[in-house]
Design a protein around this nucleic acid. Sequence first.
DNA 1: CGTTACGCTGACGTTAACGTCAACCTCTCT
DNA 2: AGAGAGGTTGACGTTAACGTCAGCGTAACG
Lengths: 141, 141
Amino acid sequence: MTRKPAAKAEVMTIREMCAAYDVTPRTLRFYEAKELLSPIREGTRRLFTRRDRARLTLILRGKRFGFSLEDIRQTLDLYDRDGSDAAQRQRACEIARERLAIMEAQRAELDVAIADLKAELAASATNTATQRGTAPSHAAE
Amino acid sequence: MTRKPAAKAEVMTIREMCAAYDVTPRTLRFYEAKELLSPIREGTRRLFTRRDRARLTLILRGKRFGFSLEDIRQTLDLYDRDGSDAAQRQRACEIARERLAIMEAQRAELDVAIADLKAELAASATNTATQRGTAPSHAAE
DNA sequence: CGTTACGCTGACGTTAACGTCAACCTCTCT
DNA sequence: AGAGAGGTTGACGTTAACGTCAGCGTAACG
């Protein structure tokens, strides 16, 4: 009757997961097959823990940044430290630092791209207004 | 008057493009087939103009942000104003603004992800240090 | 007891974004 | 003239990340 603090009832069925994260069952099963998730089994059915949910959040986030599932799988190991030895954690840290560098570079480039697009939009706006354009300005990589 | 020697590099062969942008010929032909590039033809051969190069820069940039080629193709139309009528430019602007919103959201989330990863790295570092006495040699700010 | 709902496991289909390969031009150089 | 370098067009193969479908189990519901 009394609920234990953050221990037992913290599991979700596949449908609940799908609703909560806007993914299909197929996707979750696929991620499990790829060892990105590891839900516990109640008989044959999957029960997703908060660990699975945390990982799924990171997976979906990673995807939005263009990382492959394999990329993500490796980075994920950093986030759960239990069950991995010192060498594994070490490796996970290296990978994570690489990932971090990539993401920071990505952010820098994103800023450029945003500024670029804004400028182009502004130009296009004045262009539409005046119906007469100037030379296009482009910044190469 | 003949053409300026400096302006000789107006067009590039496919090989030059490949070297300059680190892509394969197949990729460039593929992009042409998808109407992302439109090199001029010298007989049967392709010659890529600065317009193609500008577009290619944007294409590769877009890809790094996880956009599909089709997404990119549509946004690209904003960048060249010639050959499109008012309605088309209008539509391109709308698409570009959507893209812009996506990218700004992406930037915000990227900040979160970076902070997250940094925190996790820091935690993992202290964890490693506690366990084995190895000092964190280089931590990010 | 049947049926409806949810879940599982293969297994094959699909789309995007190219890779790979064969077969063929077309210059240039020796 | 022959060899090679660089280019071209199909056409088929590949990988990632799922979609779709068939067939089966089971648990509850009426």
